[in-house]
């Protein structure tokens, strides 16, 4: 039983333990959440419990893109208006929401459910890579856009995927990296600045002409 709350009643200690196992929840937060739930009206607590059970009962992985879905095919994969020649590879289902929010991509997705993290014992076999290869087998997809996080493990995953797909003849691209909008140059780290410098683009004139830099595929947004 819980070492976090040795003097708490058994059901309380059990709930503290359960919260503590959640990502980003430390022992203090687990205790706070538990005691908040104890004070919560019964119907609200039941609603929360029912929502948790509902997620476990009704949510599955989409057979195609591995995103979380209510059915074997998610809404994005069912949408026939989307561009099926491009697949954007992301680490987690939340990343699909982030890319969709930007309204800059109308292709399909593939969710890896993780990233290669050798120190944590997570290797390529733990990601949804075999499912990706199955999707690419029929030749419909012409471009794979890797949108893993811009950190070392994300880069390693991107390079691994690039190697994995190198013999398939599919174009493999990765999201550009550089300075975020609204940021101050003086606070940028050297790696971000170096990437931004390497990916510099010709400044567009006010009438929209000038420059072929940027490199992004113009068709992505539509």
């Amino acid at each position: 039983m819980s070492e976090l709350a040795p003097s708490a009643a058994a059901p309380v200690a059990r709930l503290i333990d359960a919260f503590h196992r959640l990502p980003g929840v430390g022992p203090k937060s687990a205790q706070r959440l538990t005691y908040h739930l104890i004070r919560m009206p019964r119907d609200e607590a039941e609603e929360l419990a029912s929502a948790i059970i509902g997620v476990k009962d009704r949510i599955v992985f989409c057979d195609t893109c591995m995103n979380i879905s209510e059915s074997v095919e998610c809404a994005i994969c069912r949408d026939l208006t989307r561009d099926r020649t491009r697949i954007c590879i992301v680490e987690e289902p939340l990343d699909v929401l982030a890319v969709e929010r930007a309204r800059a991509f109308r292709g399909m997705y593939h969710v890896l459910h993780g990233v290669i993290s050798p120190v944590n014992g997570i290797g390529p076999d733990d990601l949804k890579l075999k499912e990706l290869l199955v999707r690419l087998a029929d030749g419909t997809v012409t471009e794979v856009i890797i949108a893993t996080n811009p950190n070392l493990e994300g880069e390693a995953t991107a390079m691994y995927i690039q190697r994995l797909l190198s013999h398939l003849g599919v174009k493999v691209t990765a999201l550009a990296r550089g300075l975020p909008s609204g940021a101050d140059l003086e606070y940028a780290d050297d790696s971000t600045l170096a990437h931004a410098m390497e990916s510099r683009a010709e400044v567009q004139s006010s009438n929209g002409t000038g420059g072929s830099g940027g490199g992004a595929s113009p068709g992505l947004a539509n």
Binding site: N120, P124, D125, H167
Partner: peptide, 23 residues
Amino acid sequence: VRSSAFMDEVTRWRPAGANSPSP
């Protein structure tokens, strides 16, 4: 040392799920 497996795989390059090894 857990990361040795990935280092070995990358060095030998036998990717998971690949039907044939890349050149």
